[in-house]
């Protein structure tokens, strides 16, 4: 099925608009990162990153999210080449890995809070939980979005519609992994040192 000129123009606008929204999201993360950088040593007398972060755990999280982003890219490729079954498999893997990532992150948060290192303890922890937590919130929203996409696919399954909506999700998902590069580096790697 071919698209009319208007539909192509409309899709173009939506992609540009969504991309610009992601750029504004970048700026939001910037303010959170800047806040974290300023407050990372304000531990209120308590332990800092080097005592609290477990690099091995975080590396596994990082590789899971990276794999999720990779598999999402494969899903994008699949649907652009009309391979519906492969697409569903890859999208399913994306969601599963995303859930694994989020579970690991929530476990980490739970452990910290259980040991008494809550966001209310110090500025450092407030900044840590907020920055990493905002990223996690974006991941959660992405997972809801991906699930709705699968539901929409089985509801009506019109190829170009799903392609259009999915390519927006894919960009969003890749973008979240890009943000994670910097959380991994600046929060965890530099925090542990």
């Amino acid at each position: 099925m071919s698209e009319s000129a208007e539909m192509i123009a409309k899709r173009d606008k939506v992609q540009l608009g969504f991309w610009l929204y992601l750029m504004t999201d970048c700026m939001l993360f910037t303010s959170l990162f800047a806040t974290y950088m300023i407050l990372r040593n304000s531990t209120n007398g308590g332990p800092g990153g080097s005592e609290l972060f477990s690099m091995g755990f975080v590396l596994v999280e990082t590789l899971i999210l990276l794999t999720s982003s990779y598999v999402c890219g494969l899903a994008n490729l699949a649907i652009h080449n009309g391979r519906k079954k492969e697409f569903v498999v890859y999208l399913g893997a994306t969601i599963a890995l995303g859930i694994a990532f989020l579970t690991m992150e929530l476990t980490e948060f739970g452990k910290l809070i259980g040991e008494g290192h809550t966001p209310q303890t110090s500025a450092f922890l407030s900044a840590f939980f907020t920055l990493v937590g905002t990223h996690g919130l974006h991941i959660a929203i992405g997972l809801i979005w991906a699930s709705v996409l699968i539901w929409a696919l089985y509801r009506q399954g019109r190829q170009e519609d799903i392609l259009r909506k999915f390519s927006l999700f894919a960009v969003f998902w890749h973008f979240l992994d890009v943000v994670w590069i910097f959380i991994f580096t600046i929060v965890y790697a530099m925090g542990v040192k």
Binding site: L59, T62, L66, T67, I181, F184
Partner: peptide
């Protein structure tokens, strides 16, 4: 994917 993964592992190793 492999390159990005390698870079993450390298950062971890250094840390």
């Amino acid at each position: 994917y492999l390159l990005a993964g390698a870079l993450s592992i390298a950062t971890y190793a250094l840390a």
